[in-house]
Nucleic acid binder design. Structure first.
Lengths: 117, 117
DNA sequence: AACAATACCTAAGAAACTTATACATAAGAA
DNA sequence: TTCTTATGTATAAGTTTCTTAGGTATTGTT
């Protein structure tokens, strides 16, 4: 049997949206580890958005370096997990980034679909 | 007198959104020149989105090279203008890109504001 | 025994921006 | 008159952020 994929199998991320996705997930779920984030995004978007590890891990490390995230390493089933959670600064930043995103989406909709504006 | 800017004076573009903005404007206005596009975007978004020339002109050139746009040079008031318009391919591409954007916005809203999904 | 899933990581390269600069004309203010 | 602003084009250097492609290691499945 053969299936033909009709939908965009993996639409490209728009630049900057990865950070706000991570922040939002951490805001909702308190603490998460990298692999968990990739699976969560996949599930929430029904497979439409696939966060690649090559994008995710550097992003997490950077946000940690910027003081937005705290890390806690745990060993589960003899495998390493790095749990990330928002710092106070990170929580504030999340609010800002979410506002920015909402604003941006509104702006884009006004541009692209002016009749609804 | 001193004023403090409260709004995002110039929110960064999300990667990929510039192309679809250009395509959409050309779909609505038949033909436009670069400077006109920057002014139009500024007006439509009340100054919130400023398309920089360093982003715009290379993008126009690339879309022309890809066969999405046709160019027509005109001299107005002794100044050069390059009018761009959609080719047939460009028109089709515009439809696709607009669909993709709508899809992406929906996905992001589901991620970031799951209560409304 | 081999493969998929889980879990982390980085390096090389592409792509799309920003910033800065350049050139040129016209209009308006100092 | 000279300087700045607006109009109009363009490119070069640098940054950020992603994709692609690898690497390591454990556990569970075929």
């Amino acid at each position: 049997m053969m299936y033909i994929c009709v939908t965009m199998s993996n639409s490209k991320l728009y630049k900057g949206s990865l950070n706000v996705i991570i922040l939002k997930l951490l805001k909702e779920h308190d603490k998460m580890y990298g692999y968990e984030i990739t699976q969560k995004v996949k599930a929430l978007t029904k497979g439409e958005l696939n966060i690649t590890e090559g994008a995710l891990y550097p992003a997490l490390h950077k946000m940690e370096a910027e003081g937005l995230l705290d890390v806690e390493v745990k060993k589960v089933d003899n495998r390493l997990r790095k749990y990330y959670k928002l710092t106070e600064t990170g929580t504030k930043e999340t609010v800002n980034k979410l506002e920015e995103l909402a604003e941006y989406i509104k702006t884009m909709q006004a541009l692209v679909n002016p009749k609804l504006a």
